[in-house]
Write a protein that binds this DNA or RNA. Structure first.
Lengths: 136, 136, 136, 136
DNA sequence: GTGGTCTAGACCACC
DNA sequence: GTGGTCTAGACCACG
């Protein structure tokens, strides 16, 4: 079962958050070609969100060729989706990181300080096995 | 004289961009306690923006205690602003970076790959004088 | 349904009157946590006021944590609002009374006379059920 | 020498605060018929206020017959001023108290609570010799 | 349907 | 000159 977590403080539209997470699920193999996405009703109930919102997320995903409608059955992950989502995922991640970094630069905060923040935040979520960034 | 530059591609509202840049100016000492912010009319002319929009930015800044109204004179940088703006700036930068990094993790992209993206993007904007991140 | 009454003779801006009355409504339980404030358009129609004016009142209320935006739905009374509004109301009332009294004192009018004015004005609006102030 | 104290948090225009306090000074005998009001320059220096502001206060006072221009000398307290100011003072005090009380009522705060606030605030500034309000 | 943003322009009070 | 308030109305994103 697909787990999607909405972040109320996230300023991005809910439907974008949903669509992105579906893409992530496809990229990481949680959803595979031929799998059905959760029904609009089910997911909307689970997320306590208006069905229109889920619907819109799915519409976007159809537009991007990630899901396709199989009449009488539901929305199925396409055969091209996994590959595409892996690429998309990389670019999504990159673009968000880039824009955050760019904005940090625009703030005219001391670059050294930005870098130290970056290191701290990156280190935070890493188990002791992965403290590579920043080295020594 | 305070230089503010609007970025049309920036998705944030104009008034937020203005307010943030004023805060950054205060944080970096370009505007000091007691200085007057550029007048609403002047700044609106300079930015080719409606006076109401500038006004709104300034109102937010009053609400945050960065500016205070001196009747008939203009909006003055408060005595508490510089310190506050420095903190705010740091936290603003940190929180944006953090949320981008958190989402990257949620994407279940290989952490090593995230780290490499991070390094690349950070390196991009740095002159050759500052290639420290990532170390040796 | 929330009843708001604008007072043309009141020197305070319309948007402040609206915001205050919403706070009072929350304080007195007419609006409860989770309730939606009247929509901007609806209230603006009811009060014969520009939607922007209502909007501004609501924006202040968001800034004070009384209302929060539920995207596509409306503005909801927050969980912390009722308690906060009760406190705010009390302090608002107190501070207005205090400053009026302080100024009365600064006028060097005979204190006995001030007190008699106070009693008169307080008595004015009280039904016969509440003539307690000033004792006997 | 006339002591005037401006209250920055007071929302009333500065010129009104000045004019009112001059009237209070006349009412209480600090300034008497024939006395000269402090010069515009002197008072503006003392209050750290724009001379125009003092000027405007004096203009109002001339309009109300409290001061009159004696050419080459300054602004003199008129013969009718003391009597007039005593009346005006009473009405000023009353009207501010009244409007504060009216607003308290509009807040729908429990009247008993308003009354208790009123008593507290009134008691605050009274020496032990004058705890009359509210009786026992 | 909801609110948010922005423009244009009027009017006012204050200094 | 300064900012504040308000109106009128357009456009957009979200649900």
């Amino acid at each position: 079962m697909l787990l999607i977590h909405l972040n109320a403080t996230d300023e991005r539209p809910i439907y974008v958050q949903i669509a992105d997470q579906v893409k992530f699920a496809v990229a990481s193999g949680v959803l595979r070609t031929g799998d059905l996405a959760p029904s609009v009703r089910e997911l909307s109930k689970q997320l306590l969100v208006n069905p229109n919102t889920v619907s819109r997320a799915y519409r976007e995903l159809q537009g991007e060729g990630v899901l396709e409608l199989v009449r009488g059955t539901g929305l199925q992950v396409t055969s091209t989706a996994p590959e595409a989502c892996r690429t998309v995922r990389r670019e999504l991640v990159r673009s968000r990181l880039r824009s955050a970094i760019e904005e940090a630069r625009r703030s005219e905060l001391d670059p050294a300080e930005i870098e130290s923040i970056l290191r701290e935040e990156w280190a935070k979520g890493n188990g002791r096995a992965k403290p590579t960034m920043g080295g020594a």
